[in-house]
């Protein structure tokens, strides 16, 4: 009995300690922001790694998500004789929800995992400690550029995702099914607004980029310095980012579109 209570207490304390470490790490990363702006070369390198290299998967997924949304939207709406609204449905779904969320999930798998593994391995092979020996701050040199690259890349990728998805919906509903192109665009333009839908979607994607970068780097930085520890940290990074994105998405939707 006492043992069970002790176990519960230990877990709570461990959880709180982990959270505290993560917050402190974030504060140190944010403090390195001026350094990143002053020397953007590191940031550009990381933008290439997490952004440019994620482009292909984002473009392909967005196209197929758009195609499927157009098709399913049509099948559902045609029963009500409202198939002209398929453009509205595709655009609102993508801009408000699927664009930011699916981008963040794909980003966690494609780029977040590699960030965690890279930083974890740097720690396991004691590259981070040797940097400290040489009076180079690993948070400034390694973590900050990677974090800000994720923060910048996710909103850009999400915007690309939504735009390509809307185009995919257009291909299916106008090209394949034969809905009037004017109805597709004009219904969409009547329903979607910049300040409500597109701005809120962009805010969501910034939040998700923050989360994805933060969790991935924290898991890598705190990984047990063994090969199994790094592999575990990589898995946990992707799982926790996905859960955090999905949970926070519900909260943000309730706040924004309530």
């Amino acid at each position: 009995m006492i043992g069970a209570i002790q176990g519960l207490g230990r877990r709570t304390l461990d959880g709180l300690r982990g959270l505290g470490e993560a917050v402190l790490l974030m504060l140190r990363i944010l403090r390195a922001a001026p350094e990143v702006v002053r020397r953007p070369r590191l940031l550009i390198e990381q933008l290439y790694v997490v952004g440019v290299l994620s482009l292909v998967i984002i473009l392909v997924s967005a196209l197929f998500v758009g195609l499927v949304l157009g098709l399913q939207g049509y099948y559902t709406l045609v029963d009500f004789g409202a198939e002209d609204a398929v453009g509205t449905m595709v655009a609102l779904t993508l801009v408000r929800e699927l664009g930011p969320v699916v981008t963040a999930l794909l980003f966690a798998g494609r780029a977040g995992s590699s960030l965690t593994a890279e930083v974890g391995l740097m720690k396991a092979t004691e590259q981070l400690s040797s940097m400290e020996m040489m009076a180079v701050d690993p948070e400034r040199r390694i973590l900050a550029p990677r974090f800000f690259a994720a923060l910048l890349a996710v909103p850009l990728l999400a915007a690309i995702f939504s735009a390509v998805g809307v185009f995919g919906g257009y291909l299916v509903s106008v090209g394949m099914i034969g809905i009037d192109a004017g109805a597709y665009w004009s219904n969409m333009q009547n329903a979607v607004t910049v300040q409500d839908d597109i701005l809120n979607g962009a805010i969501k994607s910034v939040v998700f980029g923050f989360l994805a970068g933060w969790i991935a780097l924290h898991k890598g930085y705190m990984a047990t310095p063994t090969s199994s520890g790094v592999s575990r940290a990589t898995t946990m990074g992707v799982v926790h980012t996905s859960l955090a994105v999905l949970g926070l998405d519900f909260l943000l939707t309730a706040l924004m579109f309530g």
């Binding site: 933008l47 290439y48 440019v52 850009l156 665009w185």
Partner: peptide, 22 residues
């Protein structure tokens, strides 16, 4: 490549604002 990526992202926002929201 990074320049192209950023330009593509901004173009995505522009498409959303102009074409999607009218």
């Amino acid at each position: 490549w990074v320049g192209l990526f950023v330009a593509l992202g901004l173009a995505g926002f522009l498409v959303l604002a102009l074409q999607v929201s009218g």
